[in-house]
Amino acid sequence: MVYNTVLSIVLQQQEAEDICQEVFVQVYHSVSGFNGDAKLSTWLYRIAVNKALERERRNKTAKRINSFKKVIGLGVSEEETVAELNHPGIRLEQKEQAAVLFSALKQLPEKQRIAFTLVKTEGLSYTEVSEVMNTSVASVEGLLHRAKENLRSILTSYYTS
């Protein structure tokens, strides 16, 4: 559950495993503070999503700093790891299409992306997603609707260009 969620966000198995470990370490340290006002699974999803997004933001910042350093001549050229847009849970005949969809998902705003990911890859209900994202069910519906519209727009321009 945690690994699947994180992998669907970061799309790299090694990184997903590392983030998963961080999630369980945090759970280990803060489980005494869990007061049961939400379900344990909701709490786990929240930590997993936050950790995955944190890592993505950190990676983006590091890339930007590195690019800036390269421009001013201080950067060290590193091999850029291309995200493996290959989720092991996707059926073989759909892998190529799923890779395109994952790529399009990365272009969405964070909230839309998380809502779509939790519904489609984890199979959570709108109510469960609203608990994880600490928002209302109506907001989740709105996010999903906008996510699908944006994805259609991105994919249409991808295929028509």
Partner: peptide, 28 residues
Amino acid sequence: VHDKVEDILNSFNGMQRAELPPFFETRL
């Protein structure tokens, strides 16, 4: 194009959860 886009949007259907890599618990 429309059909292709819809196919792609439905490509997560039937998706299985990814399993933890081996020896994850040991490393954790």
